[in-house]
Design a protein around this nucleic acid. Sequence first.
DNA 1: CTCCTAGTGTGAGATTTCTCATACTTAGTG
DNA 2: CACTAAGTATGAGAAATCTCACACTAGGAG
Lengths: 226, 226
Amino acid sequence: MEKIVDDDLKQQFMTQCHYESLFGSDLAQHAELLHFKTQEYIVKNGIQPAYLFYLVKGKAKLYDSLANGKDTLIDFFTPPCFIGEMEMLDAKNEPFGVQVIDDCYCLALPMEKYRAQLLADPTFLQHVCIYLSHKNARNIKTASRNQGFTLSQRLGAFILLTEHNGYYNEKHTQVAEYLGVSYRHLLFVIADFVKAGYLQKDRRGYRIANQKALQRLAWEVNSSDN
Amino acid sequence: MEKIVDDDLKQQFMTQCHYESLFGSDLAQHAELLHFKTQEYIVKNGIQPAYLFYLVKGKAKLYDSLANGKDTLIDFFTPPCFIGEMEMLDAKNEPFGVQVIDDCYCLALPMEKYRAQLLADPTFLQHVCIYLSHKNARNIKTASRNQGFTLSQRLGAFILLTEHNGYYNEKHTQVAEYLGVSYRHLLFVIADFVKAGYLQKDRRGYRIANQKALQRLAWEVNSSDN
DNA sequence: CTCCTAGTGTGAGATTTCTCATACTTAGTG
DNA sequence: CACTAAGTATGAGAAATCTCACACTAGGAG
C-alpha cells in the first residue's frame, strides 16, 4: 500500500465518482488517495481496517477465511464501491479479506478519526444503505445464476471477468469453491476449453485464445443483469 | 390487513423487539399495529408500500415477479425484521412482493408522513445498515448452501421451515425455483420422501410423518449457521 | 538434501439433476 | 358446455457434477 500525493489525480477521481456528494459535511477533503498493487491486501482477514475505503479504480476480490484455515472466494469489487463499510458500522463483525486483482486506487478516510462523524451523517448513511441494498440484490441474482447456468457458461463469464492481460491465472482450488463445483469438475471443463481451443496453456498460465467463444458462453449469464 | 387497536399488545411487541431503540426520536409512538392473515400480501409486487413495516410475529416470504409473469421465491422473513426498507430508501426500486405464510403482526410507520424524518435519523439509518449487512451475509451463506448440499438435505430443511400445522403445502413449481432445481427433480425427491415414509399424502396435502428423519437430513444444512 | 504441503492433473464409476415427452386434474373463461 | 392454463404426476435417457484414487511438481522447513 502506498499513499499517492497528487492532488490533481485525487481531485479527478473524486469528481469522476461523485465522492463529495456521499457526505453531508465536507469530510471528503480529508480522504487520502491510496494505491494497492496486484496481490496486495486492502483488508486483511480478521484485522480491523484502519480506513473506510472507496474503490475508484481497479478490481479486487472478497474472501472468507473458514475455521479450517481455507479461503473461500465470495465476491468481487469493481469501482465505484465501498470497502470496509461493514466493519465501520459494526466492529463486532469479523472482517473478510479483500485482495487486489488489478491495481487499485482507493479514496480512504481514517476510520478511527472520522467514524463517529460518519455514523452521525444521514447523507452518508443513506448512501451506504442504498449501496448495501443494491449489493444484496446483486448477490441474490448472482446466486440464482449459479443455479441457473451450467459451469461452462459461468466459467466463461468468470474467465473474462478475472482475465488479466489476456491470461487467466486464478487458483483452481479457490475458483472451484467460488463457482460452487468440485475441483475435479472445474479441471474437467477447463480441459474442455483447451480442447475446444478457447484457452491455450503456456508457461505463463492459460492464455485466452478465443475470446469470442467465451463471450458467447457468457452472454446469457451476463444478460440477466437488468 | 387489519389494524389492531390494543395498546397493551402493541406495547408488548414494542418492548419485546426493542422497537423504540431503533429510532433517535420518539417516532415509535406513531407506529400502528397491523395484522395480516395467511396468504395475504404485506407488500404487493410492483406497488409502493404505504408503510415501513417491522415484523414482530409470524412468517412471510419474498417473491420476485419476473418479466414473463412468473414468480420466484427469493427469501423468508422471520421476526424481528424490516419489510419495505428498500422501498423507503430508494423509491426507484421496483418493490418485491411479500406474502404471509403464518399470521403476521407488524409495527408499521406511515411511509409518506415520516419518510423524511426517517432518512434524517442517524440512529435509524444505522440500524437499517446493520440489518442490511447481516441480511446480506445470511444470503451469501444461504447461497453457498444451495451449492454445497444435495436437494434431499435442502428440501428436508425447507419442509421444516415452511411447515404449517404438520403439513407441507407449498406450490411445487415455486419451490423448485427457490431451491434451484428442476420441477421434475423436486417431484422425484418428494416421491422418495413419501416412499421412505417421511411424508404422507392425503387430501390436505403432504403430512409430515417422520419429523426426526427430516431433521436429520436438515441438520448439516442448518448447522453451518455460525 | 529430504520431507512435507499445496496446487495441479487425470481416470473411472457413481450420483444428482436435467430435458423431453406425455397425462390427468382443476379452476377460470367465453 | 368446451377450451385453456396451471399445477400435478410419472417415465426414460442424457448431461452435469461428485467422489475416490492416484500421480506429479514446486516451494518451504528442517
